[in-house]
């Protein structure tokens, strides 16, 4: 098999050596075109020379990489069979990598999965999100306003509530004070009865105190009854007056 090569692209020494080596009888010594003989043995010789010229000591893969070619032509491990690796090879070494560029796009199945993922990860459109945010903001505003109204109404009643509470406390304190005074009076009366200071824990004292208390209660009861009677009488009189008026 012969190839035509432009002379200007070949170094003259290279050309002459080729001419020397060529065995083809129909060699054209044209100015423009030279026929290069590349029969198998010549090719093998060239390859051997090339191999000797490569003094880098690199592995074939590394040699390929530094010369801008993909490292492996045939897969060396499972990872080299993946789509990702093929895409990478295309991305790095272009069409020379021998990868079909149609691999770069997702397949129908992948596309379907992508769509499904997006329908879960981004379920709402921008408009929907905007609306929901707006609604949330309105709700928040409403809540704040209501709380403010509530606070204002409570603040208006605050003085009254304060007064009520203070009254309640004072009333309780007065009651306690009155009860204490009553007790003290009773004790004093008992003491006066005996004519000397007696230990309040004494039995006689206790008896006397109980007696006094009983008397006091009786008196109180009587007073209450009298008051009741008085009211009743007043009512009856009132009724009588009404009847007589009629």
């Amino acid at each position: 098999m012969n190839i035509c090569v432009k002379t200007k692209y070949l170094r003259s020494s290279f050309v002459s050596s080729l001419c020397r080596l060529s065995t083809a009888p129909d060699l054209e010594q044209n100015e423009q075109v030279v026929l290069i003989d590349d029969t198998e043995d010549v090719q093998a010789k060239e390859a051997a020379i090339e191999k000797k010229r490569n003094k880098s000591g690199l592995t074939q893969a590394h040699y390929n990489i530094i010369n801008g070619r993909r490292p492996y032509e045939e897969p060396k491990c499972i990872a080299h069979l993946t789509v990702k690796y093929s895409r990478k090879m295309y991305g790095k070494y272009g069409i020379a990598s021998g990868v079909n560029p149609s691999l770069c796009w997702p397949t129908r199945e992948e596309l379907r999965e992508k769509k499904e993922f997006e329908s879960v990860a981004y379920p709402y459109t921008i408009k929907e999100v905007m609306d929901s945010v707006e609604i949330k903001r309105q709700e928040q505003k409403l809540k704040t306003e209501q709380r403010e109204i509530e606070l204002a109404s409570k603040f208006a009643k605050l003085e009254q509530w304060k007064k009520e509470l203070n009254d309640k406390i004072n009333k309780k304190a007065n009651e306690v004070k009155a009860a204490k005074q009553k007790k003290e009076r009773l004790v004093e009366e008992v003491r006066r009865h005996f004519g000397f200071t007696l230990d309040p824990r004494d039995e006689r004292f206790q008896e006397m105190l109980a007696k006094r208390e009983k008397e006091q209660k009786k008196l109180e009861k009587q007073a209450r009854m009298e008051a009741k009677e008085k009211i009743m009488i007043a009512k009856l009189q009132q009724k009588n007056v009404e009847i007589s008026e009629k």
């Binding site: 295309y90 991305g91 981004y122 999100v129 945010v133």
Partner: peptide, 19 residues
């Protein structure tokens, strides 16, 4: 670009910055 993938789409912002 060297991964040889198609350029993806930009996603929408999350709700807290949509405003």
């Amino acid at each position: 670009f060297q991964t040889g993938q198609a350029i993806p789409r930009r996603m929408i912002p999350p709700p807290d910055v949509i405003e």
